[in-house]
């Protein structure tokens, strides 16, 4: 029957449950407490001493770490001594001492303030021009669409398109004159404008071989 905490620790070490040369305090404490749980009789004095031993272990480990640090410091000191000895013998390293230089900054002048103002103004002007131009072009498009709507252009386009589909059957081209029954100025315009729309939509080609002669309308084949 193990009674003393040291005995418990020794038991753990001999079983290989803990490495006495590299003790993980948390792991040891956990194992220690587990061992205590396993013991049939719980003695308060025992658990008190367990805590005491755990704290002792922690302190020993902390001291160990401190010794390691001291070793490092010692090495540095030894290095320095070696370097100094070498210095005495032959090498003379130049000591670098950077000079302190004044970093000047000057105040801004009134001229510069005014120059910046004119730059800011020109940027603002450009921004405004762009804003108005964008607004203008929007108005133009809206106006155009409104006109197209007013003049029933969209309907006319559909009519002309249907007419062309009919006429193109088995043919390469349709003549402008074929689309108009009666050559009045208004009928010419109301047929010609939808053709321009269709040409701009890349649905047809418009071609006139001679000035004032008939207009050839061809289907546009996608390239």
């Amino acid at each position: 029957m193990l009674e003393e905490p040291v005995e418990i620790l020794l038991d753990l070490a001999t079983r290989g449950d803990i490495d006495p040369w590299d003790i993980d305090i948390i792991e040891v404490t956990d194992k220690f407490l587990k061992k205590l749980d396993e013991m049939s009789q719980l003695d308060l004095r025992l658990s008190g001493r367990t805590l005491f031993y755990a704290s002792m272990l922690l302190r020993m480990k902390a001291e160990g770490l401190e010794v390691e640090d001291t070793d490092d410091e010692l090495e540095e000191v030894l290095d320095d001594i070696e370097l100094e000895e070498e210095d005495d013998v032959k090498i003379e390293y130049p000591k670098l001492t950077p000079r302190i230089r004044r970093k000047s900054k000057r105040p801004v002048t009134l001229d510069e303030l005014i120059k910046e103002l004119s730059k800011a103004e020109s940027v603002e002007r450009r921004k405004n021009i762009k804003k108005y131009t964008d607004a203008d072009s929007r108005i133009k498009v809206e106006k155009l669409l409104k006109i197209a709507h007013d003049e029933r252009i969209e309907e006319k386009i559909l009519e002309v398109e249907a007419m062309l589909d009919e006429k193109f059957k088995g043919r390469d081209y349709v003549l402008f004159s074929e689309l108009i029954d009666c050559m009045t100025p208004s009928s010419i315009v109301y047929t010609y404008i939808p053709l321009l729309f269709l040409a701009s939509k890349k649905a047809i080609w418009l071609e006139q071989e001679e000035l004032y002669e008939d207009l050839y309308i061809r289907r546009r084949v996608d390239e």
């Binding site: 000047s104 000057r106 303030l113 103002l117």
Partner: peptide
Amino acid sequence: GKYLKNLAPREMDTQVLRTLSVIA
């Protein structure tokens, strides 16, 4: 001071100065 304009950098950033000019 006037001879040193191009030697010493301005103590205020151009962008900040431009904002100050707009406010002024």
